[in-house]
């Protein structure tokens, strides 16, 4: 970055932004308007800026971001559905000097992987867990997630989520924040540029805490799913602001006492 670029007519341009080396040259497969690619960018920009590409090992989940390792130019492992935090534990325990993160969706982290999530944080594993909550199973075609809101229509709740039948949306981030092993717990989003900047700050802090062996850092990103929600990307942003953030308010849930 900050390289000078000379045009044919002699104009000198300063490059202020480019694809970081931590992202591969593979086009994202995500649907238009999906938040995943933005979160990938943010993560890899932080890895680039902290110069920790050679130290960072990621764990991809099962879900839409199953191919995260195609895009992130770092060493990565692909975990079984829900087991990313156990896989990350295995990596971190044998390579304690490396920086390890898992990247998981709501079905992965808060349904099938609930036990692994809770116990990983409860052990205070020195890792970062990035939790993408869009309230739906995107990859399998828009089924109900543990975080689907009451009344929300999905392919397995075609008349809206009935809490008497299907239970309530699981605020797993609130649960995790109660555990002594959790060092830093925050809920962020990527629905506008300001939110993206805030997420980047949170990710940077989380990696710095990991370098100081502080315990588990947990970042929820309340995100969207235009295809699953059957909305345009712009409509999903409005839905996030009007509905999702009411149930999942943005902000820090646990911050270190400094």
């Amino acid at each position: 970055m900050n390289e000078k670029l000379l045009l044919d007519d002699g104009t000198e341009l300063e490059q202020v932004y480019c694809r970081p080396d931590t992202l591969t040259d593979v086009p994202y497969h995500y649907c238009p308007g999906c938040g995943h690619s933005v979160v990938h960018n943010v993560l890899m920009e932080v890895v680039d800026e902290l110069d920790i590409q050679d130290k960072t090992i990621g764990v991809a989940p099962v879900g839409c971001s199953v191919f995260a390792y195609h895009y992130m130019n770092i060493d990565m492992q692909e975990a079984a559905h829900g087991r990313a935090s156990a896989v990350a534990t295995g990596i971190k325990r044998v390579l304690p000097d490396k920086l390890v993160f898992s990247y998981q969706g709501d079905g992965d982290l808060a349904a099938i992987g609930t036990a692994e999530t809770i116990h990983t944080v409860n052990r205070g594993e020195n890792i970062l867990i990035v939790f993408i909550n869009n309230g739906i199973y995107g990859m399998t075609g828009g089924q109900m997630a543990p975080t689907t809101l009451p009344g929300m229509v999905t392919s397995t709740s075609p008349y809206g989520r009935d809490v008497h039948m299907a239970g309530y949306p699981l605020k797993i981030t609130d649960l995790v924040a109660q555990l002594p092993g959790a060092y830093y717990v925050t809920r962020q989003s990527v629905h506008n540029p300001n939110a993206v900047r805030k997420l980047k700050k949170a990710v940077t802090k989380a990696f710095e805490y990991q370098m100081q062996n502080k315990g588990t850092c947990f970042i929820e990103v309340v995100s969207n799913c235009p295809s699953g929600w059957k909305m345009t990307p712009v409509e999903t942003i409005k839905y996030l602001e009007d509905v999702m953030f009411q149930y999942y308010p943005l902000g820090d849930l646990k911050v270190p006492k400094e």
Partner: peptide
């Protein structure tokens, strides 16, 4: 379930 996935992670990390 967690044990074997920890084994996966550690084995993948070369342990």
């Amino acid at each position: 379930v967690a044990s074997i996935n920890m084994v996966y992670g550690a084995a993948g990390a070369g342990a």
